[in-house]
Amino acid sequence: MNNLPLNEFVKAKRKSLGLSREEFAQKAGVGIRFLRELEQGKETLKMDKVNQVLKLMGMQLGPVPMDRQKLLESK
Rank of each mutant, 00 (worst) to 15 (best):
M1S: 12
N2V: 07
N2C: 01
N2W: 01
N2I: 05
N2E: 12
N3Q: 11
N3H: 09
L4T: 02
E8R: 04
A12L: 09
A12F: 07
A12S: 15
K13W: 07
R14M: 02
K15C: 02
S16L: 08
L17W: 07
G18H: 05
G18E: 04
L19P: 00
L19V: 03
L19W: 09
R21E: 02
R21Q: 13
E22Y: 03
E22A: 08
A25Y: 00
Q26E: 08
Q26M: 01
K27T: 01
G29L: 00
V30S: 03
V30R: 02
V30M: 02
V30A: 05
I32L: 02
L35K: 06
R36N: 08
E37M: 06
E37Y: 07
G41P: 04
K42F: 11
K42E: 14
L45S: 14
L45P: 05
L45I: 12
K46L: 13
M47S: 14
D48W: 13
K49E: 13
Q52F: 04
Q52E: 06
M57R: 08
M59F: 14
Q60V: 07
Q60I: 06
P63D: 13
P63A: 14
P65F: 10
P65M: 08
M66L: 15
D67R: 13
Q69S: 15
K70P: 02
K70S: 15
E73V: 09
S74K: 12
K75F: 07
K75I: 14
